[in-house]
Structures are given as structure tokens and as C-alpha cells.
């Protein structure tokens, strides 16, 4: 299992056990498979995604990434895990404006020591970014920016790719194109995809779907 979530609860400050944002969530995700997480706004989708990415702490239960339990990891071990095994794609792309497109794409992989030029070049070609490499992230369109973010995430060849409404800022056609590309590449690289979306159409494109309501899976 790439991702194993067992009975996880998460409370933000000021929340009680009853109002906790996540109350006993469990799920599994194996290599090469994909899971769409849906739910109303504020239902805890992003929170769950962040827990899965070793970005935040949870209160009870356990999250395992590729067999490693997160609750026992130190800050730097979690950082190492993020560098090598987990990638993220966000709705706002969150590119680094001070680095060129090329450097943005390579950044994460190089931080994790996993950059392979051939794979990177292939990704860029597949995502149609070859002409953009020397540009800075502000210049290309939203769709292009998101493809840069996807390239950056996949350049790592992560075990787990987390995407939080990756097409939320794109129009429908761009969004479908981006999704298709991403799914193709995920399959190619054997990466497990955990994706948050509010679009039923996109959810349908993935292997499995999970709906969050009142802090539990429905």
C-alpha cells in the first residue's frame, strides 16, 4: 500500500471531539491506483489530503506512506519523506515566481535528489512545456502554469501524488485536458493519485471515489 489511513481524527484548535474536522477516517491507496475525494466545501477534504502528505499532524489513528507510519517521524524525517515520495499539485499552482519554468519543474526532484534529465525532458514534451523553459511562471496561461506544477510534481517520480482541486482555476476544456494528461502520466509512472475535487465529472475519471461528510467517509 502506498497510502494507508487508519481511523485518523483531526481537531483544529477550539474543536471538540464531536465537531472535529476528521473523525475516524480510514482508506487505502495502492501504487498506480487513483482515488477522488469529494465533499462539500469545509468538509475536511484539504485537511485529509494534507495529513496524507505528511504536511500536518493528526490527533489519533495512523497514516502510513509506503509502510512508514507518520506519527513516529521527526520533522526532518517528514521533510525527507516529502522530498522523495510525495508530490503536491494545488489549485493555485504555487509555482516559485523567482525561478524559471525549467527550474520550477526540476526544483522538487532536485531537492529530493531524484532528478533525471531524460524523464524531465519527456515530461516537458508530454505536457507541451518544451518552449516555455526559460520563461518565468507569471508569463504562461493558467493551464500552462498548472501543467508546470504537474511536471514539477511528477518529475520526482513520487510514490504518492496529492492534488487539491488541481483544475479549480481552469476552464472546462483546459481542465479536462490537464486531467487527462495527469492521469496518463500517473499511470505511466506507477504513482498513486489522491485527488480532491468538487467536480463529479473529474471524480468519474478516477478509479475510486470517497465522499466526506461530517468528518467521516460516506
Amino acid at each position: 500500500m502506498v497510502l494507508k489511513i487508519r481511523d485518523v481524527t483531526k481537531r483544529y484548535p477550539g474543536q471538540t471531539a464531536e465537531t472535529a474536522v476528521l473523525r475516524g477516517i480510514s482508506l487505502d491507496l495502492s501504487a498506480g491506483s487513483s482515488l477522488a475525494l469529494t465533499g462539500e466545501s469545509g468538509s475536511g477534504k484539504s485537511t485529509l489530503l494534507h495529513l496524507a502528505g505528511a504536511l500536518d499532524h493528526f490527533d489519533s489513528g495512523e497514516v502510513e506512506i509506503d509502510g512508514t507510519g507518520l506519527s513516529s517521524l521527526s520533522d526532518s524525517q517528514r521533510a525527507a519523506l516529502r522530498r522523495r515520495d510525495v508530490s503536491l499539485v494545488f489549485q493555485q499552482f504555487n509555482l516559485i515566481p523567482s525561478l524559471s519554468v525549467d527550474k520550477n519543474i526540476a526544483l522538487h526532484a532536485r531537492l529530493g535528489g531524484k532528478w533525471e534529465t531524460s524523464w524531465g525532458t519527456r515530461l516537458k514534451a508530454r505536457l507541451g512545456l518544451s518552449d516555455l523553459q526559460d520563461h518565468y511562471p507569471e508569463q504562461p496561461s493558467g493551464g500552462q502554469q498548472q501543467r508546470v506544477a504537474i511536471a514539477r510534481a511528477l518529475a520526482v517520480r513520487p510514490k504518492l501524488l496529492l492534488a487539491d482541486e488541481p483544475t479549480g482555476n481552469l476552464d472546462e476544456t483546459a481542465s479536462a485536458a490537464v486531467m487527462e494528461l495527469m492521469l496518463e502520466l500517473v499511470r505511466e509512472s506507477g504513482t498513486a493519485l489522491f485527488l480532491v475535487t468538487h467536480s463529479a465529472a473529474i471524480a468519474q475519471m478516477l478509479d475510486r471515489r470517497l465522499h466526506l461528510r461530517h468528518g467521516t467517509a460516506a
Binding site: 521533510a79 522530498r83 504555487n94 516559485i96 523567482s98 526544483l107 522538487h108
Partner: peptide
């Protein structure tokens, strides 16, 4: 923060 957070998410520790 918007500059730092992505780098952190990509595995740079807060100490770093």
C-alpha cells in the same frame, strides 16, 4: 509565506 510554503511542502524543513 506564499514563497516559502511550496518549498516547505516539497520537503524543505522549517529549520532549513
Amino acid at each position: 509565506l506564499p514563497q516559502i510554503a511550496p518549498v516547505w511542502a516539497m520537503g524543505a524543513s522549517r529549520r532549513q
